[in-house]
Design a protein around this nucleic acid. Structure first.
Length: 893
RNA sequence: GGUCUGUUAGCUCAGUUGGUUUAGAGCACCUGCCUUACAAGCAGGGGGUCGUAGGUUCGAAUCCUACACGGACCACCA
């Protein structure tokens, strides 16, 4: 029949159409007088590869963009990548190490050369992969956070914040990543419960009369980090703790290093925890640092930046030993010295670096901070008032609680790959007998900084200024993404047209790192929200709800999936699996369903293309079928529309899936299908082709490739500009509700005839005689000849006629409130029939009872809305009618 | 510790201001079919007292309270 293969093979078709769309410039737009629609991609790490999260995320963005494009909006989707400071630098460092090169042996410039080389080699792989998925990004607008213009914006905003007094530098306790040797913001530290050991260590009281300097009595403290013992400055107890009241004014000896430290009293100590005594280590714990400040304690920092101990630990064998190795050694050292009391198993929350997974150490250091309070206020208000709409709404709570208690943002990083902080330091000559404070000048360029410096110190030369060695946190550039990618700091035409963007689609895991900060940046520099809505996707997990991760090996290869199921199949699977917000359990079964759906569509096309055409006129059957289908498609269009406005994409897709598979393939095509080998009339064929093209347009946002292919196959012209990708989305027309109801009733009758066939073991193609007893309902159903002929055709009936009398030798069923008889040329199993009917009767009687309960309740009749009441009355009448039929039939058996 | 959120079919989830033929979908399952678009398919079927206990209401999966068990976020953790 047809030259088309029985199975759909996506590979060639997908590449062909993507290249064609791209070449035709369909994805690019410039401002004009149409309604704008814009999305900025959450920029993946420049050297990253496509993973499941990206697939989900970008499929959603593409579906939204394509829908807007079909609707005639001026749609752009801006792609790009993030330089991902710490993540990329870690990769480059690892690559260099494999080549035998240490970062510490390189100059900054040499390192940056390697990093750029790496970026050129691997950056952009992920953008190619996005094309495979069908992403209709405006590639002419591809951005990178370290592009020249973008970098200037990052520096500009730093200078601006500084000049507004919203930036400051401070020496405080930070989260330190010992592997990357940089500070981290609070948001980059991932806390998790871990098994640890709680060391109980006895600190002996100082006793000047004893030869060892310490007495027999002591205080037992509990610590999880015994390697910091040598940095202790005090032992603290609660002032009201009777166990320790007698120790006032006494000192204890720090184990191993034999240094005397005071016992201090502070109600910060929890009497009930452990022994009620706490070692105080101001350099290595934030709370201890506060205690130290309050009590004037010494700060002893015994950790190097790489997490090894330094000579301040006072034990030669531990110098240059990693903190965890040192912890193991401490066990023996403490035991040998007689200080170790016991070690208890202990579950506690440990913070690890998001990027290197190293245990984060609290460490004192000088860093740059953004004063967040003022920035947060308008961004919080925008979400509270739904000026920025969150889907799902529940994320408003999380956002609010974080924003309301926002802490200052540490934005300097001890890395090289990134935007170097534009702060220039000058140490003026020291006045006699004193030390001069270092002056800070913050400016866009070194030249401008020099001008500032010379205004204060005319003799300063360029060489006297020393630029800050650090770079900015990655997020201090990506928070400008919606502004900078549209050249917003230059007040471009495109910015004024496309900003604020229509929607942001991203995972909820970066709500603080990115979403909240973009909102703040939008208001800070543009006095306007960066996006009208945020759609938070779920997190892709495996079927056991585990996170997808490389180490678990449960993360499928995205490109392999596209190979196996086709991009459309994968897109279907990602979209169908789950609505916004929660976890998304990845199951290959769904991709299989998507692939099967493609095949179903393909075979519908094969069927239609295989028909010969005749010039005969359309019969009632086909006319009714087409009218019914067109009418029903409006209902589905409305449903999809409603679901799209709420970002319920999975529901939109599923209603379309069911509409196409069931209503179109299983019902409509069967209704109009000519007998085998017979031709179809031209009108019906044309209507059917039009319907299929309409369905393809509706499906295109979800599954762009196969829909384009089928669209083109049906068109057969392939004329320039006639592509579905830039076609138009179907408009809703009127719904003939009465007709839809009639055909749905006919479908019920057909299904029940098939059920009889099935239960009686009759052949599907064996023609049957069916009779019915007519009420007004069934007469009206038969009004349109087409409806009756549908039943005859799909029920495979020899005849379908009304009867006044009961029919012998027949199996009966009830549909609506009418009775139908399927005449059989075999003996009827009376007992089986009786049982079936009794069961049905019971069901109807129970139903009637529940309806009667309502209707006999005066207060229901008095209070319920009229349409509810009317409906209950109809339910009652219908139930009564059915019960009458069943009782009569039973009596006759 | 604070806040939020969930509990509906074997699994994953819908159920959108409380009422729409005594709860829906997909997958899985069962029965019968290689019927000439499609076995990646066709036709049909079974399966849930909506976590528990109260309450509000003419009416509750839907609103309220308590409890049980999950999950998440934030803060703290010697």
């Amino acid at each position: 029949m047809s030259e088309l293969s029985t199975k759909y093979t996506p590979a060639d078709i997908e590449d062909k159409w993507y290249a064609h769309w791209d070449k035709s410039g369909y994805f690019h737009n410039e401002p004009d007088d149409r309604e704008p629609f814009s999305i900025v991609i959450p920029p993946p790490n420049v050297t990253g590869v496509l993973h499941m999260g990206h697939m989900l995320n970008n499929t959603i963005q593409d579906a939204l963009t394509r829908k807007a494009r079909l609707e005639g909006k001026n749609a752009i989707w801006i792609p790009g990548t993030d330089h991902a400071s710490i993540a990329t630098e870690a990769k480059v460092v690892r690559m260099l190490r494999e080549r035998g090169i240490k970062k510490s042996d390189l100059t900054r410039d040499e390192f940056m050369a390697y990093a750029w080389e790496w970026k050129e080699k691997y950056g952009g792989i992920i953008l190619q992969q996005l094309r495979k998925l069908g992403s209709s990004c405006d590639w002419e607008r591809t951005a990178f956070t370290m592009d020249k213009g973008y970098s200037e914006d990052v520096i500009r905003t730093f200078v601006d914040l500084y000049n507004k007094g919203k930036l400051y530098r401070d020496y405080r306790m930070v989260n330190w990543d010992c592997e990357a040797k940089t500070v981290l913001s609070n948001e980059e530290v991932i806390h998790g419960e871990e098994q640890a050991a709680l060391f109980h260590v006895k600190y002996f009281l100082e006793d000047e009369n004893s030869p060892t300097g310490q007495g027999a009595e002591g205080v037992v403290i509990a610590t999880q980090r015994p390697e910091t013992i040598m940095a202790d400055s005090a032992v603290a107890v609660h002032p009201k703790d009777p166990r320790y009241a007698h120790l006032a004014g006494k000192k204890v000896i720090v184990p191993l290093v034999n240094r005397a430290i005071p016992i201090i009293f502070d109600d910060y100590v929890d009497i009930d925890f452990g022994t009620g005594a706490l070692k105080v280590t101001p350099a290595h714990d934030p709370n201890d640092y506060e205690l130290g400040k309050k009590h004037g304690l010494e700060i002893i920092d015994l950790l190097n930046e790489d997490g090894t101990l330094n000579e301040k630990c006072g034990i030669a064998s531990l110098v240059s030993v990693d903190r965890f190795d040192a912890r193991r050694h401490m066990k023996k050292l403490l035991a040998d010295a007689g200080n170790l009391v016991e070690i208890k198993d202990y579950k506690t929350s440990i913070g690890r670096s998001e990027r290197t997974n190293t245990v984060v150490e609290p460490r004192m250091s000088l860093q740059w901070y953004v004063d967040m309070k003022a920035l947060a206020a308008p961004a919080l208000a925008a979400v509270e008032t739904n000026d920025i709409d969150f889907y799902p709404k529940s994320f408003k709570n999380i956002y609010r609680s974080w924003m309301a208690e926002i802490r200052d943002w540490c934005i300097s990083r001890q890395l090289w790959w990134g935007h170097r902080i534009p702060a220039y330091y000058y140490a003026p000559p020291a006045p006699e007998g004193g030390v001069a404070a270092v002056e800070t000048f913050v400016a866009q360029t070194a030249e401008e900084a020099l001008v500032l410096a010379q205004a204060k110190y005319p003799s300063v030369m360029a060489a006297d200024l020393r630029q800050d060695e650090d770079v900015l946190d990655t997020w201090a550039s990506s928070w400008l993404w919606p502004i900078s990618t549209l050249n917003g700091f230059k007040n471009s035409e495109e910015f004024n047209y496309y900003y604020p963007t229509s929607v942001l689609v991203t995972g909820w895991d970066i709500i603080f790192l990115w979403v909240a900060r973009m909102a703040m940046a939008g208001f800070e520099w543009k006095q306007e929200r960066p996006f009208k809505a945020v759609y938070f996707t779920g997190m892709v997990r495996d079927k056991q709800r585990r996170k997808m991760s490389k180490s678990l090996g449960n993360s499928p290869d995205a490109l392999k999936l596209i190979e196996d199921f086709g991009a459309d199949g994968v897109r279907f699977g990602m979209l169908a699996s789950s609505p916004a917000g929660g976890d998304l359990l990845f199951d290959e079964k769904l991709l299989e369903q998507g692939r099967n759906f493609c095949n179903k569509l393909w075979n519908a096309l094969r069927l239609i293309k295989g028909w010969e055409v005749t010039e005969t006129t359309q019969s009632d059957t086909e006319r009714v079928a087409a009218a019914w289908f067109e009418s029903k498609s409006n209902t589905v269009l409305a449903e999809i529309e409603e679901n799209f406005t709420q970002f319920r994409l999975s529901e939109a897709l599923m209603s379309l899936y069911n509409f196409i598979w069931d209503d179109f393939c299983s019902w409509y095509l069967e209704m109009i299908k000519p007998e085998y080998g017979k031709p179809i009339d031209r009108e019906t064929l044309e209507i059917t082709e039009r319907i299929l093209r309409k369905l393809m347009a509706m499906l295109h946002p979800f599954m762009p490739f196969i829909t384009e292919e089928i669209w083109q196959q049906l068109d057969g012209k392939n004329t320039e500009g006639s592509d579905l990708c830039v076609g138009s989305y179907p408009k809703q027309t009127t719904i003939d509700a009465a007709l839809v109801a009639k055909v749905e009733a006919a479908k019920d009758i057909i299904s029940k005839i098939r059920e009889v066939r099935n239960s009686k073991g009759l052949k599907p193609r064996e023609p049957l005689v069916v009779k019915f007893q007519g009420s007004e309902t069934v007469k009206s159903l038969m009004d349109r000849d087409g409806v009756k002929s549908l039943i005859t055709k799909l029920g495979v009936l020899e005849s379908f006629e009304m009867t006044d009398t009961d029919v012998e030798n027949a199996v009966s069923f009830v549909s609506g409130t009418d009775k139908f008889f399927v005449v059989l040329n075999q003996t009827i199993d009376i007992e089986a029939e009786r049982e079936k009917m009794t069961k049905e009767l019971q069901h109807q009687q129970d139903f009637l009872k529940s309806v009667n309960a309502k209707l006999s309740n005066e207060r229901f009749v008095a209070n319920a809305k009229p349409e509810i009441l009317a409906n209950e009355q109809k339910k009652q009448a219908d139930a009564l009618a059915r019960i009458a039929i069943l009782e009569e039939s039973l009596a006759k058996l």
